[in-house]
């Protein structure tokens, strides 16, 4: 099936999905903390646009609410909160380099292939469009996890965690046209609380080890500690 033969709505969804995945790759490899947060805000915006598009096409008004929630939380509030932390700790030029960017990106590529492979059995029941979207959502989730393990700073780890959630939101919107309203609201509330708690945590970590470098938090382990 060729891209140009699809209806315009499906083309748009696919293009936006590709955009979400591409932004995940950017975030994975970008060394500057400040830019990673901005990329994250862009991903939130693309996600909100996709939600609004699905709402328009499928005539489901409650999805507009969820689009507004996504826009408010993922594209505005959380990036604002994180950027405020950057201001507060004067980290505008601070880098969080990953040790082997090439290898990390190759791993990420392999993960995407793996996701396409895993979702194949389900895809047989579906239209080609859902197959792509479900694979991309799962990829964004796994890339978020990869970002969590390859980054050392608390701020970039939080961005990794939140991209992972972006992937889930995208799956809920694109594959099932959103969740029931009560669930959507509950999830948004949880994300909001989580963002606030992360903010509190940055202060605590900063106070206790005078840095936001998580790799220095390593007192607890199975080995004997003194």
């Amino acid at each position: 099936m060729f891209f140009a033969q699809l209806p315009i709505y499906e083309q748009a969804i696919l293009a936006l999905a590709a955009g979400v995945l591409l932004l995940s790759f950017f975030m994975l490899a970008h060394p500057r903390i400040y830019s990673v947060i901005k990329l994250f805000a862009w991903q939130g915006l693309v996600l909100a646009a996709t939600t609004a598009l699905v709402a328009f096409d499928s005539q489901t008004p409650h999805l507009y609410i969820s689009a507004v929630l996504t826009l408010g939380l993922k594209a505005v509030f959380i990036p604002w909160l994180l950027l405020r932390m950057v201001d507060k700790f004067e980290m505008h030029h601070e880098l969080d380099e990953i040790r082997r960017p090439g290898l990390t990106l190759l791993t990420a590529g392999a993960l995407v292939v793996f996701c396409y492979h895993t979702t194949l059995p389900i895809a047989e029941l579906l239209l080609a469009i859902t197959r792509n979207v479900i694979a991309i959502c799962m990829s964004v989730v796994l890339l978020g996890m990869l970002m969590l393990v390859s980054r050392n700073k608390a701020l970039t780890q939080v961005v990794g965690f939140m991209t992972l959630e972006n992937g889930l939101f995208f799956a809920a919107v694109a594959v099932t046209k959103g969740m029931p309203m009560v669930v959507e609201l509950g999830i948004a509330f949880d994300v909001l609380i989580a963002a606030v708690i992360f903010g509190v945590f940055f202060l605590h970590i900063r106070q206790s080890i005078d840095s936001l470098d998580i790799s220095r938090l390593s007192r607890l382990s199975e080995a004997e500690r003194e």
């Binding site: 945590f201 970590i205 106070q207 206790s208 998580i214 938090l217 007192r219 607890l220």
Partner: peptide
């Protein structure tokens, strides 16, 4: 708020 407890909570 000990370093250990913050690490555990994170």
């Amino acid at each position: 708020r000990t370093p250990e407890s913050i690490e555990a909570a994170w």
